[in-house]
Amino acid sequence: MGFEENLLFYLTFAAYGIASLLYISYVGTKNSTTAKVAFYVVAFGVVVNTAAMALRGYIGGYVPLSNGYEFLLAFSWGIAFVYLVTEWKYKVPITGAFVIPIAWLLLAYVAILMPVEYKVARPLMPALQSNWLTYHVLTAQFGYGAFAFSFGAGIMYLIKERAIKLNREIGLAAKLPSLETLDQLGYRLIAVGFPLLTLCIITGAIWAEYAWGRYWSWDPKETWSLITWLVYAVYLHARFTYGWKGKKAAILAIIGFIAVLFTFFGVNYFLSGLHSYA
């Protein structure tokens, strides 16, 4: 990768890292200026993240959503973007301490562990030359961003709930939003993520139909996205009909995001299939 690409990547990486630290220190200090600065740092991160993707598109000559590096840039973009919108709408900056580090960790993976041959722009092999692939990844990008947020909210819920139960609502737990707020936030984001994941699966099926003549072939990546989808369907139904709110819902939201991560990483590393060139 050229100097400009590396520069933009590391600026994004640094922005999410600094924002994570600011949000974590905000948990300690509750200093609202810190939260405000952190918000703008994330916004800056989204801008350079976008620029990194745009430059990759320019260099590669294709929509930059087709290899591991590009997916991860898109994923971290999705998380940070969804965070900004959610924070702007609901004003619970403390969630930043639980959500932005996820975006940062994804990029840390790129920086530290990803072999360089997965990072460089490569000419698209014929199967990847499809607009449906673009829609497929775009919907995943926003949907996964929303799920990452609900995961963060779920973790916060469990921390808070445990502290309340032990009657020790001090320190971190005391600063977290109310259980009700966390539960509602988690639900709102899953309500955003679920239709997007559905669209992601459908556009993926359309792509597969054009490329291979089969809209569904139970390959491991497809199957794991279906499993993820089912976990969130269970979340919605259990919540709706059995009133599984609070702790059980938080646990399901966490399981759901673990399934997302497994679909994203695990399948490539542990299992094999059509998607393995991703």
Binding site: T223, L226, I227, L230, V231, A233, V234, H237, A238, T241, Y242
Partner: peptide, 11 residues
């Protein structure tokens, strides 16, 4: 719910 869970797990 039972079916959704069983299908997810067996998949």
């Amino acid at each position: 719910l039972f079916l959704l869970i069983v299908i997810a797990v067996t998949s």
